[in-house]
Amino acid sequence: MIQDTVTEDIIMRKPKFIAFLFTTIFICFFIFDPSQSIVGHLLEPALGDPEKSGFYGRCVTASMSAVLLVLNLLAISWIPNFRLQVITVWLQLLILFLSFFYSFDLSFEFIRSKIWFMVTQGIFTTLYVSAISIVIASFIAIIGAVAKMSSNGFAYAIASFYTSFFRGLPLLMQVYLIYLGFPQIGYVIDAVPAGIIALSLCYGAYMTEIFRAGIMSIDHGQWEGSRALGFKFGLIMRKIILPQSIPLIIPPTGNQFIAMLKDSSLVSVIGVWELMFLARTLGNKTFNHMEMLITAAMLYWMMTMVLELIQSRIERKYKKQQSR
């Protein structure tokens, strides 16, 4: 999106909007009844025991909460620096989330005792299963994309059948089909290879379209220029077309990898000890399920953030190359 150089007034400076915002927030708070909340307890000297303050107390606490929230939003709107504004909002949302988790009364002792194992066993397995799968999926995708653009009916039929089938089935079902189905024809595969095959085939099908779009976006003049020099198809693909389409392919492929990282949790059903499996099992003995689930959630989120960072680095690198 290209920002216009002329912007409207900041919406938070419009009294009408502030009034509207306040009313909405007030109604929300009133419905959720904040009289038991921190605000309610802070107002205890004025209102008395929050449990007994009734309708009046509910009104006051709701309006106080709404005032605080609107003031907070106003304060944020006065921050002149875009970056600083983003950081402030991020921090506030993060604190909100963490306090939400904190309110579950979690055993941090238990989390501390398990987190190292979750990282070394769980994250490690999740990452290597996903990494191998995305590499295989990329190879499948190149071949699939070429086959889909081919004038050979046979190749096109196989490729389109493949993408249609593997995009049409839930990944979980593919995992089961491969793990339970292959032995029926005499091949017994272990859980990890079965998971890798399922993830590769499924994502290969999605990425076929990404690669196809990337290849199609290259100007046909590049094909003609290469052909006029006497290059053969494989050479054109390898040296001319793919290097130019990679900057277009990298961002969506990064997204696929991030999605795969989370979809790889589905292989936990066949007993692979990756992050999701550990999240579901580690807390079982002492019934600390919530702890493990939240820890795993945080770990997934952190992994994703790191990967997003890496992805934006790579994207920037290619952008620089293009503008050379």
């Binding site: 295989i136 499948i140 070429v146 086959a147 081919s150 196989i158 198809f233 494989g234």
Partner: peptide, 12 residues
């Protein structure tokens, strides 16, 4: 090129 796909699948 067209034969590569099933071939690679089998190898894989």
């Amino acid at each position: 090129m067209k034969l590569l796909k099933p071939l690679l699948g089998t190898l894989l």
